[in-house]
Design a binder for these strands. Structure first.
Lengths: 209, 209
DNA sequence: CATGCTGTCATAACGTCGTTATCGTCACTC
DNA sequence: GAGTGACGATAACGACGTTATGACAGCATG
C-alpha cells in the first residue's frame, strides 16, 4: 500500500531511483548551478552508475526536461495557491508577487525554464513551453476577471496578461543577471512603479490623447 | 602603413590570429549557438591549434568575455548612432527600437551578454556589467532630456530608464525564448502597448488617485 | 656571426564530460 | 529449474577545456 501525500519524508529505504535522480538533480541545480549538474556527479550523489540516467530517462537533456517540467508545475501550483478575492486589482498584485517570489526562490531553475542558462544540450521543447503557458493561463484568467469586474479596460486578455508578464519577467531576468545596481532599491524604484504605470495604463477609463 | 577604416575587407593575408579568433568566435556563436563555440572547433576554423586561445586569452571564458565586451560596444554604438531630435518622446521610441533591433540581429550574443545561455564556465563579471551599463547610460541621458523638455514627469532618471529597459528586455527575452505564441502579433499586441502605457504613466502630469 | 630571450604555436597528454556496448544480477513467470 | 526482462555496474568511445613540452621565428646583445 503506497501512501501518497504532500511531502512524504522517506517512507521507503530505497525510494525509487528515478525519483531520487530528479530530486537530487533539482537540488544540485539549485545549489551549484547548471554547470555542476553532470551525469557522473548526479549518479555519484544518488549512489548509482551513469547508466541509471539512461535506463530511466534516455539522456541527460531528457532528465533536465523533467526537472524543468516539475519546475513549471511548481510555479503553476505556487501561483494557483494565491487566494482569489473580490478585489481583482489586488489579485493581480498578489499573483505577480507570488510569481516573482517563486522565481527568486529558485533562480537557477527559473533561468533554465525560460531558455537562459543553456545547461548542456538541453533546449526548450514546444511541449515544455506548453506546460509553461499553463501558468500564464492563470494570469490570463485573473486579467479576465479584472476586465469583467471593470477594473481593467476590455481588451484581449492574453495580450494584456502578456504585457504584465513581459514586464515582470524582464525585471526578474535583470535582477538575476545582476544588472539592478543602477538604482538603490530596485523593487521600489523599478518593479512597483513599472507595474503601477502599466496597470494604470490598462485600467484607464478615458482614452489617451 | 596600416590602413585603418570601417570594415576593412582583408588587407593582410594573415590578419592577426587574435583578431580572427574573436571574429570567428562571434560568427560561430551567432550562427550555431553557444554549444558550438568550443576551443577545438574555433581553432580548427581559424586554422591554428588550441594553444592560440591560451597564448592570447588565457582561457576560453576569457575569450568569450572579450566577445561579450565587443557585443556591448556594438550595442552601445548602435544606440548611440540613433539621431537625437527635439522630439524627446520620439527619441525614446527610436532608441528603444534600435536596442531591440540590435538584440534581434544578434540573438545568441545578446543572450550571452545578459547572463542567459551560460556558455561553458563563462559568467558575467562586474566589469562586463559595467560596459553594459554604459549603453544603459545612453538611455538615462535620453530620459533626462525628456524630463528637461517636460515630456516626462521629473523623477530619478535612472529609475525611469530602468523601468523602460526592464520592459524592453523582458520582451526580448520572451521573444527569443519562443514564448510569444500567446498572441498573434506580439509587437502590436505586447511591445507597443506596453511601452505606450509605461510612457503614458511616466508622462502623466496629473497625479494618480 | 653566435647567443640568449621572448612570443607564438604544434603536438600530445590529462582529467572530465555525455553516451554506448556489454554483461551480470536480480525478480518474476511457466 | 529454465526462461525472460528490467535494472545497473563496468569499461570504453569521442569530444571537451586545459596544460606541459618543445620547435621555431624575430630580435637584441656579445
Amino acid at each position: 500500500m503506497a501512501r501518497v501525500s504532500c511531502s512524504d519524508p522517506a517512507p521507503d529505504p530505497v525510494p525509487d531511483v528515478r525519483r531520487r535522480l530528479l530530486d537530487v538533480a533539482a537540488e544540485v541545480l539549485a545549489e551549484e548551478g547548471p554547470s555542476a549538474l553532470t551525469t557522473r556527479r548526479l549518479t555519484r550523489e544518488v549512489g548509482t552508475s551513469t547508466m541509471a540516467v539512461y535506463t530511466h530517462f534516455g539522456s541527460m537533456p531528457a532528465l533536465v526536461r523533467e526537472v524543468v517540467a516539475d519546475g513549471f508545475a511548481q510555479l503553476c501550483a505556487r501561483v494557483g495557491a494565491v487566494p482569489r478575492t473580490d478585489d481583482t486589482l489586488h489579485d493581480l498584485t498578489t499573483v505577480a508577487a507570488a510569481y516573482r517570489q517563486h522565481a527568486l526562490a529558485h533562480p537557477r531553475l527559473y533561468a533554465v525554464m525560460f531558455g537562459s542558462a543553456s545547461l548542456g544540450g538541453y533546449r526548450l521543447s514546444d511541449e515544455d513551453k506548453g506546460v509553461g503557458l499553463e501558468a500564464f493561463g492563470q494570469l490570463v484568467a485573473v486579467v479576465e476577471r479584472a476586465m469583467a469586474a471593470g477594473t481593467l479596460r476590455r481588451d484581449d486578455p492574453a495580450a494584456v496578461a502578456g504585457q504584465l508578464w513581459t514586464a515582470l519577467h524582464g525585471y526578474i531576468m535583470l535582477e538575476q543577471a545582476g544588472f539592478h545596481r543602477v538604482v538603490d532599491d530596485p523593487e521600489d524604484a523599478l518593479l512597483h512603479p513599472m507595474l503601477g504605470h502599466l496597470v494604470a495604463g490598462l485600467a484607464a477609463d478615458r482614452m489617451p490623447g
